[in-house]
């Protein structure tokens, strides 16, 4: 017995695949940006904010890091409109909007924890030096703590970004027609199941490599010029 590979039927629908690919890319970039902004704000609040705000952020982070993404997605897409209805709100998110929202709050929770670790990696003595020069609390965070903190966690953030890109595939279950959603469609029309999924499997892999290359190039451009600073400022003797 031999299996006849027939990629032709799949390639015939290349336009669909390209649309799906572009939507995956769009979801990844938008979610990455929103997640980064969310993570940055929440990490700063979680570390330096007033106690009630710290608690609120901690709750958000723990809830989204300790529940399955698929269930979060269903809650946002199916659950929230139901609750809204009982309050007379007729809000029905499109699959795309629900997917974008679920991915963003999910990645935001992970980014918060990563960036928070970075903030904590900046030694207390740095803060003392800056405060002793008369900087305000916000100036200390903005100019003294955040730059080295983000530099320290850049590798963790960039691998999280790749995971996010791969994770966008899950939103196909609420019929967002990104790459995986498109593939589901194509294989149901062509019955070329293996060929379809093998093809997008390769596309995801290639995209991951390209994204990693871009992220590494950014690191080399903005971070690589200088060796990572020694953990303790006092340890350097040339």
């Amino acid at each position: 017995m031999t299996y006849q590979f027939q990629f032709g039927a799949v390639f015939a629908r290349a336009e669909l695949l390209i649309d799906g690919f572009l939507l995956t890319l769009q979801l990844t970039v938008l979610t990455g940006l929103i997640g980064l902004i969310l993570g940055l704000s929440c990490a700063v609040i979680r570390t330096y904010g007033p106690r009630p705000a710290r608690m609120a952020v901690a709750t958000y982070v723990e809830i989204f890091r300790n529940t399955p993404f698929l269930v979060q997605l269903f809650l946002i897409f199916f659950g929230i409109p139901e609750i809204g209805k009982t309050f007379g709100l007729r809000w029905l998110p499109s699959p795309y909007m629900a997917g974008l929202a679920a991915l963003s709050v999910n990645i935001g929770a992970y980014a918060t924890e990563i960036i928070r670790a970075g903030l904590q990696s900046v030694h207390r003595s740095q803060v003392e030096a800056a405060e002793s020069l008369g900087l305000t609390r916000w100036q200390v965070i903005r100019y003294v703590i955040l730059p080295p903190a983000l530099r320290n966690v850049y590798p963790a953030l960039s691998s999280e970004f790749i995971l996010l890109m791969l994770g966008t595939s899950v939103v196909s279950v609420i019929s967002v027609e990104e790459l995986t959603g498109t593939a589901n469609l194509i294989q149901s029309e062509t019955y070329r199941t293996f060929e379809t999924y093998a093809l997008i499997w390769v596309i995801y892999f290639a995209l991951a490599l390209v994204l990693k290359g871009i992220l590494d190039a950014i690191a080399a451009r903005f971070i690589g010029r200088q060796k990572p600073p020694p953990a303790a400022a006092g340890a350097a003797h040339a």
Partner: peptide, 10 residues
Amino acid sequence: VFQAYNLFPH
């Protein structure tokens, strides 16, 4: 001025 200099490394 501190014992450990505390310059901003970045």
